[in-house]
Amino acid sequence: MRLLLRFFTMIIPIAFLSASFPAFGAEENLSISETLFKDILNSNELKLFPFIPPLKLPFGVSEHMFMLGLSIFLILILFFRGVKKHSFKPRGIANFVEIIVLFIRDDIVYPVMGEKRGRHWLTFFLSMFIFIFTVNIIGLIPAFKSATGNISVTSAMALIVFILTFAVGFKELGFPGFFKNIYPKGAGPVIGVFVVILEFFGYFIKSIVLSLRLFANMFAGHLAILSFLVLMFVINPFFGFISVPFAVFTYLLEVLIAFLQAFVFTLLSCIFIMMASTPEGE
């Protein structure tokens, strides 16, 4: 209970700060949609503090690339410290790291894949979950952006899953076996081939939707926060008394969504890889 209280006392000022941040975009005489997108879309400038002029990133590094690098840096620090301090009775960071590992293992990988195969895949899905989760949640810190709100990042992640689906399927079942697996039993040749083609394209659609889901959730979440705040400039400055609490509420919802989308992405990719590589009836 005390932890929850501390969490809220910590997160609400951050939420207010984050919510009030885009207001500074209004100084520059931009249109409403430009103001909204300026705080979500990728750019070459790193604007970390409101009154200091933005930092130009060198070598064509964009802001989302910076965020990706920062998030893997943070994850590696967390894991290095956690593993170093891990002992028989873990406390603090070590306990947190262990909770994440156990969550991925017991709630995603082992129930879907079984213990024997899951042991090999655990590291992959763990790194996928922690990567997406950190990239999601880093965008909720004021002045930072979610790289998962960019469709290039999510489609890159979905492409990994897509390639792995086929690679593992071909490896486990063989090239003809893979198609035989999606061929419906007891169907005529015309319908069977049709279903096989449909299922085959289903893999593409699943992967596209996988990337779109994460992208749309993160993008729409940030857009919702910002839209509430922009109402302040469109209608009346005193509308802020209504719109800022709504923005804070949406922000808190975003914390949940950041976790849930990382979970769903990991779970779905786990299921896709499993379904393509398991013979029917097992």
């Binding site: 709630d107 129930p111 879907v112 939707v209 779109l212 889901r213 729409a220 779970l267 779905l268």
Partner: peptide, 24 residues
């Protein structure tokens, strides 16, 4: 509970994907 929850999230996510398709 665990199996049902997993399948629920899976199905909800698949439908949600289609809804997002329309929205996008």
């Amino acid at each position: 509970k665990k199996d049902i929850r997993t399948n629920m999230i899976l199905m909800a996510a698949l439908i949600e994907g289609l809804a997002f398709f329309g929205a996008i």
